[in-house]
Nucleic acid binder design. Structure first.
Length: 188
DNA sequence: TCGCCGATGTTCT
DNA sequence: GAACATCGGCGAT
């Protein structure tokens, strides 16, 4: 079934766990996400709309692709409320289809590390700036909601940020061996 | 297995 | 000029 983006970033981030994402038929099952929104100092949208983050302020269900640390690409899904800079960073996939293509693009064999991290995931799926602003329900993207009813999803502190550590807006499939890093629990 | 470091686009001070 | 939603390679443990 098609994925519904008419919800806030934390809700969408949780529901994306277990969904299947492919780009031109290459990808797998989402096992790790993080939510961001405009009220959050750790978010790219916090300081308002700029040329880089413009697609975060566009319609939900589209891609926001940005360059990280000068070299890597990172893929986000834009969420509700529309025009408010809310989004979900896709951090890791369990590779299921097109594994040979991903191994070739990443120049490694180890399947566990093909998509274990936002930069690695974009390299494996061939995502770059040309996908920024594209709809996630149209080619080359394909996003299918999880068919499993009950998935064990854990949440905790987001990775690589210094602001808003109190928000447990990182979500992951419990026990997955395809995460970018082990989950660390937030403050209780 | 851990931690430091370099590469370097975009934004902010 | 510095920070940053990162990664891979290197040398030290």
């Amino acid at each position: 079934m098609r994925f519904d983006f008419s919800a806030t970033a934390p809700e969408v981030a949780q529901r994306l766990i277990g969904a299947t994402l492919t780009v031109d038929g290459v990808g797998g099952v989402i096992v790790e996400t993080e939510a961001y929104d405009q009220s959050d100092p750790a978010s790219h949208s916090y300081a308002g709309k700029t040329a880089r983050n413009a697609s975060m302020f566009g319609p939900p269900g589209r891609a926001y692709v940005y360059r990280s640390y000068g070299l890597h690409w990172c893929l986000n899904a834009v969420c509700m409320p529309a025009g408010h800079g809310a989004g979900v960073l896709i951090r890791a996939l369990e590779p299921t289809v097109g594994i040979e293509t991903m191994q070739h693009r990443r120049r490694i064999q180890e399947v566990r590390l093909l998509c274990a991290g936002p930069g690695r995931l974009c390299q494996a799926l061939g995502v770059d700036r040309s996908h920024d602003g594209s709809r996630l329900d149209r080619k080359p993207f394909r996003l299918v909601a999880s068919s499993t009813r009950e998935l064990l999803v854990t949440n905790g502190v987001r990775i690589g940020i210094s602001h808003s550590r109190e928000l447990s807006w990182r979500f992951a499939l419990a026990g997955s061996r395809f995460l970018s890093r082990p989950m660390t629990a937030g403050a209780s």
